[in-house]
């Protein structure tokens, strides 16, 4: 089989100034057009992908049950559904919180996320403690840190009572930041 060279060397004669200028112009044109194409594709791409960073959701008050559903001194888990969830979220739109009825009028709602790394803390009724399965964080019944690595108390939701209902204000998953 004959091997055919695919190399096409440049002519050996020196280039004219016009040719050099034209060549430089075409190089810049191609690079500029490439940049334009990248921008046309890239700007919407980046904007689309990072949009969630800039999406601000405001908390909404939602009912988690009747006041009479909750016993004084007890802490129970309550399931809420994100009112602003996307239609295809399914059960991932659910979240939980720990609701404690302190007395007849006062409720405390804790985020279930351990302030160490976000794992779901569990409530041990008889022990009166929250415990985290991941790295062993422990919290007292008021959410303050009792033991382990959590840097902060459990985050609290805003709670109110209205029309015989206990309402909490939805919020983002609390993220523990350093600065």
């Amino acid at each position: 089989m004959n091997q055919v060279s695919t190399d096409h060397p440049l002519p050996e004669r020196p280039l004219t100034p016009e040719e050099i200028t034209r060549r430089r112009f075409l190089e810049k044109l191609c690079i500029g057009l490439s940049g334009l194409c990248a921008a046309i594709l890239g700007i919407p791409l980046v904007g689309f992908v990072v949009a969630p960073i800039f999406r601000r959701t405001t908390g909404k008050w939602i009912s988690v049950g009747k006041i009479t559903d909750f016993e004084v001194g007890k802490t129970v888990s309550v399931t809420v559904t994100d009112p602003s969830s996307l239609p295809w979220a399914g059960i991932t739109a659910n979240s939980a919180l720990w609701l404690r009825r302190v007395n007849d009028a006062e409720f405390i709602a804790f985020s279930v996320n351990c302030t160490h790394l976000g794992c779901p803390v569990r409530w041990l009724q008889d022990a009166d403690l929250f415990m985290c399965p991941c790295h062993g964080g422990v919290y007292y019944n008021d959410g303050t840190v009792a033991a382990g690595p959590p840097p902060k108390p459990l985050i609290r939701y805003d709670v109110r009572t209205a029309n015989g209902q206990v309402e909490i204000k939805t919020m983002a998953i609390p993220i523990t930041t350093t600065l």
């Binding site: 969630p52 999406r55 969830s85 996307l86 239609p87 991932t92 979240s95 998953i173």
Partner: peptide, 12 residues
Amino acid sequence: AQFILGGTTIGG
């Protein structure tokens, strides 16, 4: 964190 979650919570 929001970039990872795709928002402020787990979801769609």
